[in-house]
Each structure stands twice: as structure tokens, then as C-alpha cells.
Nucleic acid binder design. Sequence first.
DNA 1: TATCTGCGCGCAATATTATTTCGCAACTGC
DNA 2: GCAGTTGCGAAATAATATTGCGCGCAGATA
Lengths: 166, 166
Amino acid sequence: MVATRLDPIDRKILSELQTDGRMTNVELARRVGISAPPCLRRVRTLEEAGLIGGYHADVNARELGFEVQVFAMVGLDSQAQSELSAFEERCRNWPLVRECHMLNGEVDFILKCVAPDLSSFQNFLTGELLTTPNVASVKTSLVIRVAKDEPGVPFDVLEERLSRTA
Amino acid sequence: MVATRLDPIDRKILSELQTDGRMTNVELARRVGISAPPCLRRVRTLEEAGLIGGYHADVNARELGFEVQVFAMVGLDSQAQSELSAFEERCRNWPLVRECHMLNGEVDFILKCVAPDLSSFQNFLTGELLTTPNVASVKTSLVIRVAKDEPGVPFDVLEERLSRTA
DNA sequence: TATCTGCGCGCAATATTATTTCGCAACTGC
DNA sequence: GCAGTTGCGAAATAATATTGCGCGCAGATA
């Protein structure tokens, strides 16, 4: 299933659930303008098609004691496929690393990390990340504040684009 | 309300909802080991206290036609508070910019952006971001692939940490 | 045009869940 | 030991999720 197979109702469903993933199906149906049963069927279809990957609560990291958020730019010595995969696998096993994106350009990976405090992060950095084989360079930047943090994609842009094509 | 006021049941609730934000309250209650009514009350309290900021469906950006994901490192000429705020406000108004984090170090901001294709992003880059007053430098990196993308915080680390303190 | 067929809707019925109400037990500070 | 407080859970009720089914519409076929 691809975007072109999605009708405007499907897209509205995705948009609404991206904004409020815990909305009741009744409310969702009301918003997209159909009755509850077909709405629920559509949601299930979207889930099974992988267009909805899951649902997550936004937890307040700071209040939970994760005071520090860091972006780490990582360069490797070897970019052989096996080495890239090996590094990714390590990232998946580090709980402080929440995201790992492979990039083009000089930097090979960017990691989004959280930690309870600066020293916890330093321990991770010096004890884990920097001692990992094949890691050539790591540049870290502390997050001072988060100005915008929107999930997923801008449906406005999608609709505008589709209306131009149609 | 701070983390120290959260008991193990609250933390389990947060952990479960971070993993599956659409779980029914009955299922959630079963998992955390209490009955449904107090479980729902706890969830409401956590929401009102801001420990849960919201719930979002993960939508598949690529399937929806957003093929391109980019990190942009932005440096400003002036780091005066008013200039920083002005830039942040612009970011909030750009739909392709999904996240904007202010950083320490040379780079002032890191932006996570999405776009339907490379030329859309180039248009945004040259037509918007680079022409914004006070923007001194922008370095962009295309995301080749996403190796890890976990929401929020690692509750394992939190529990381990609390058990050591207690 | 008439008919067939597949698809998706919505109504209605049922199963499940959410929410309120209330009484009880465990803790706290006198 | 005695109020006051807090949070649990049972029970009742309201709301929601889910299933089953018949209908109408759009496209295919003759």
C-alpha cells in the first residue's frame, strides 16, 4: 500500500492519530466523517500495512530524571558494510542511545542520546562510545533547549502536494 | 510532581505507554498489577502533571511520500537571546522542520527535516533556510538509513539508577 | 442498457472497556 | 488510640470497540 492508494479519509486518520494517538475510535470517526466501524477497519488496515508503526506516549524525560540530551556525531575508520552494521548493532544495545541515523558526508552517524546527568553521559562517552573499535571521532553537542519537537510528517505539505498533482 | 514521587507502578505505567500508547486501560492495569479504576486515575494524574505530554501514532514517512530526511546544522551570526528566539519561531513555522534543538558548541541549532524529495528540500534550503536573516552557515546531512529510533527514555536505566539510590 | 461483482459504507447487536461511585484498609500525625 | 488522608478494588453504569449483515454505488461485462 502506498500513499497514492490512500484516500483523503485515510490521510485524515493518519493525521489525527499522529496528533493524538489515544483518541477513541468514535471521536476519530466523527472527525474524519464516517461511522465508527469502517473507521476502525481503516485503522486496522493502516496498521497492518505498516503505515502506522505503533503508538507511543511522550514522556517527560527531564521530570523522569534524564536531565541531559546530547547529539553525537560519529565518524568511523572503515565504512565497510559489515563495520557499519556492527556499529549499528552496538547502538541498538546502548540504552542511552535513542536514535541512530546513518548519514552521508563526513560524519557517518548521528546519535541522539539521553542521560540522567552529565557525568553519566561522560561515562558512556569515554567508557563505551570512544572505546568502540572502528570509532574514529566523536563530536558531541549538548541540547540547551528544544524549540520544536513535532512527530512524523507535515500532512499539510502532503495534501498541498497531492492537490497539485491531482 | 517529580520522579521521586513516582512509585514503581507509575513508572511501569509510563514505560508501558511509551512502548504502546494505545493499550487499553484494562490491559495496562493487568500489566502493572492493579485494577482498572486506580490505573486510569494514575494515568490521568500523570497526564495532568505533564509527565505524559501526549500520544502519537508513528506514521511511515517514506510510504507517505516523504522520501528524504535531513539533519541540518545551523550557525547564526548573532546569538543574542532575541535572535535565538526569532530563529526558533521561524523553525516552528516551517512544516518541513520537525525538530529544532538549540545546542552548545560551534553549531547553534540542529534541525531534523523531512521532505518529499531532494529537490523539495533543496528549495527549502536555498529559498528559506539560507535566506533567513542572521543565518551564517548551514551544513546538511542526508539520512541514509535509520538504525535505531526509540521513543523517550530507557526505563531500564532509570530503574537501575533508583535501585542503587534506594 | 441491464446485470453482475466487488468494495466500502452504516445500522444494529454484542462484547469489551472506561468511568463513576462508594466502602474499606493501610498509613500518618497527633 | 483516634481523626484525617490516601489509594485500593468491587460494583454499577456509560461509553466504546467489534462483529455481522444488508444496502448502494462504481466499474466491468455482455
